[in-house]
């Protein structure tokens, strides 16, 4: 069974690009764009890896990450954070909140695939 990635991102074009490269690489993909309801989706989809944007409408990616880690049922899911702001402060925050990896946009497609694969195989 194909491993599952949940993509939480609100920019439609970016969603489409990441979705395309993941599908091509043999992953199954679901997407979500609203920060407020992202956790519910995570709970029902139970993805193997989450790709999480920081700047989301209604609830920021940092807050979602924090709540995610506090929930024992899904708290161990590996998370790749994406941000377009690219400040060191953001990276530190993400790591402190328990992100497994942090990437700044724009990114190379192959890097994304590599990181997701690695996270799925060995979250540490």
């Amino acid at each position: 069974m194909a491993r599952h990635v949940l993509l939480v991102e609100d920019e439609a074009n970016i969603v489409e690009a990441i979705r395309f490269i993941l599908l091509r690489d043999g992953w199954s993909v679901s997407t979500h764009s609203n920060g407020a309801t992202a956790l519910d989706t995570i709970r029902s989809v139970k993805p193997d890896v989450i790709v999480l944007d920081v700047m989301l409408p209604n609830k920021s990616g940092f807050d979602i990450l924090q709540d995610l880690r506090a929930d024992p049922a899904i708290g161990n899911t590996p998370v790749l954070m994406l941000t377009a702001r690219g400040q060191k402060k953001d990276r530190d925050t993400a790591m402190a909140f328990g992100a497994n990896h942090f990437m700044t946009k724009p990114f190379s497609n192959s890097d994304v695939i590599d990181v997701i694969t690695r996270l799925c195989d060995d979250p540490t």
């Binding site: 920019e11 970016i14 990441i18 702001r85 400040q87």
Partner: peptide, 21 residues
Amino acid sequence: LSQISHELRTPMTSIRAFSEI
């Protein structure tokens, strides 16, 4: 600065990703 960065990087992301594709 942070806002500018975000606003510039977001379209760049799509452009780069689809160019690679």
